[in-house]
Design a protein around this nucleic acid. Structure first.
Lengths: 212, 212
DNA sequence: GGATGTGAATGCATTCACAGCA
DNA sequence: TGCTGTGAATGCATTCACATCC
């Protein structure tokens, strides 16, 4: 596999996840090959877009045939780094945190929640499925011992920057942030934020657009 | 307020939500005015970006002074359509659905969950806070009676397209989709998707990038 | 014939840089 | 002087279109 990790547009990487998701769906339907046109249409993208995106990472297709579903899934997982399970931690055992801790969708995608932390003494010790909520004081040790590189934060916005800094100091390199706040992290650490209320705002704007 | 809803870049609208969020934070700190430079730095954006984005919607700033926090908040809410409360429905009272139903962050942002639906007879009738889970058969009537335009879906991927079609048929114009699947909806209807596992994949990719 | 991979062309979005106002 | 609003310039991403290969 060629591995030219230079000059790859960020949006292309984003779409890789969509391709993978769709390919996994095709696999359960026992579809063996798919063309860029078909794959694109199912995601609302052009065929050229699909081909260019995939070509950034290698030559996965066969002219006249298309892309083989199963091998391409393997390739994409390797590119995304999800061909091995990544141990992941969660900070914040509140409303959304509990739902994430019980979420069954991580494991098949290559992520396993291995630890949950909170600062609230009332929540520490509580069991969630296989896990027990631990104190934040335990966090650095657990990150080291389990070699955790990824973390999910569902903490109040006011606490989010401080928690992010603790995670980074402990060695976490990627943070999925559910707090409605921007996080400032050093180079070498990635943050992705999910702001549910902000998504609703976008829908509101678009819906208003049509009714005028 | 000028209202040139033409030629506005999608990413600019996206950032409007970030500006609003940051402005709201500034307001709680009793900050009265903010410059494009300050606002941008707190969000990792350039000052030019901030100015251009806001200028798409009107002339909100004062040269030599900056932007007044409180008036700009009002303007942005009006633009986004969140200056009035939008009644919103939820389909899917599972793991994530319950967390969303209990989520306290919608109300201050202009959204109120007014109905929850599910197909599972075991869940129908169950109370979540102020709401009672209703059958999907009730949905079209409720949408009409309460004039609901926005919906949140936390249903299995396999059911998502069908549920989306039911919502659209009932009159819903914007859908926030938590199912890991693409939705095909007619023009005039907006969809935004949150795929938590896909976000984790993106972090995985970026984290892998650095350690090579 | 059918579908990929890819330079070239186009189209958007971001950044620059500066005139003009407080 | 300080900071906005905005044309012009730059930089990216997407789309086109076609040579190439199964």
């Amino acid at each position: 596999m060629p591995d030219p990790r230079h000059d790859i547009p960020t949006p292309a990487v984003r779409r890789l996840s969509l391709y993978l998701r769709q390919l996994e769906a095709l696999q359960t339907q026992n579809v063996l090959t798919v063309s860029s046109l078909t794959l694109g249409q199912s995601l609302g993208l052009t065929d050229a877009q699909v081909r260019k995106d995939l070509a950034y990472f290698g030559q996965f297709g066969r002219p006249g045939v298309g892309y083989q579903v199963e091998p391409l899934i393997r390739q994409l997982r390797e590119i995304l780094g999800t061909d091995r399970i990544s141990p992941t931690l969660l900070v914040g055992a509140g409303n959304i945190g509990l739902a994430l801790a019980r979420f069954q969708g991580f494991e098949p995608k290559g992520f396993r929640l291995v630890a949950v932390f909170d600062v609230d003494p009332k929540k520490i010790g509580r069991r969630i499925g296989e896990l027990t909520v631990q104190s934040m004081e335990e966090m650095p040790r657990v990150v080291r011992e389990m070699n955790i590189k990824l973390g999910i934060m569902s903490v109040p916005a006011e606490a989010s920057q401080q928690v992010a800094e603790q995670l980074v100091a402990a060695g976490v390199r990627g943070i999925l942030n559910f707090a409605p706040a921007s996080l400032d992290v050093p180079p070498g650490v990635s943050v992705r934020s999910v702001d549910v209320a902000a998504e609703m705002e976008q829908l509101s704007f678009q819906a208003n657009l049509f009714e005028r």
